[in-house]
């Protein structure tokens, strides 16, 4: 088989992942895109391993490691996202700009007063029929109500 096929497929998948990472707003979607990038790399590794007929099978071993690390990464990443969502009522990463340089005019960073705008979008994000009833969302709703 032509080595260019898997190589090109891997490149394209990687770039699709890059696009997702850069363009997606929801943190979980970003994580998915990261998975795509990792998989592209895995494909590359496997293809080259098979091509080289490596006696150590370094490519496949590394792929297994990557998959394991990806599993660990997704677990931790999701835990972080859930925590952020629980505390902020949103998992939009372009809203998580707590590290931004505060403007000289404004009184505080974007995350300080729990900004009313945040609460509004949190309500928008909620499914019309209130999909989940986890404590996290209850808490977020309570917060929204309290500030409203």
């Amino acid at each position: 088989m032509h080595l260019a096929y898997p190589a090109v497929l891997a490149s394209l998948l990687f770039c699709v992942g890059v696009y997702g990472v850069l363009a997606r707003r929801n943190a979980i979607l970003v994580l998915m895109s990261v998975e795509l990038m990792l998989n592209a790399v895995n494909l590359n590794l496997v293809a080259f391993d098979v091509w080289l007929r490596d006696t150590l099978h370094a490519g496949q071993a590394l792929t297994l490691f990557t998959i394991t690390i990806a599993a660990a990464e997704i677990g931790l990443g999701l835990a972080i996202v859930l925590l952020v969502y629980r505390n902020r009522g949103s998992s939009d990463i372009d809203r998580l700009t707590g590290l931004a340089e505060p403007r000289p005019g404004s009184s505080g960073g974007p995350l300080v007063p729990g900004a009313a705008a945040d609460e509004d979008t949190a309500d928008e994000n909620a499914t019309p029929h209130g999909t989940t009833d986890t404590k996290a969302t209850e808490k977020a709703n309570e917060k929204a109500e309290a500030s409203a």
Partner: peptide
């Protein structure tokens, strides 16, 4: 299903 019980 768009149903709380279902989702749960």
């Amino acid at each position: 299903s768009s149903n709380k019980y279902s989702l749960l």
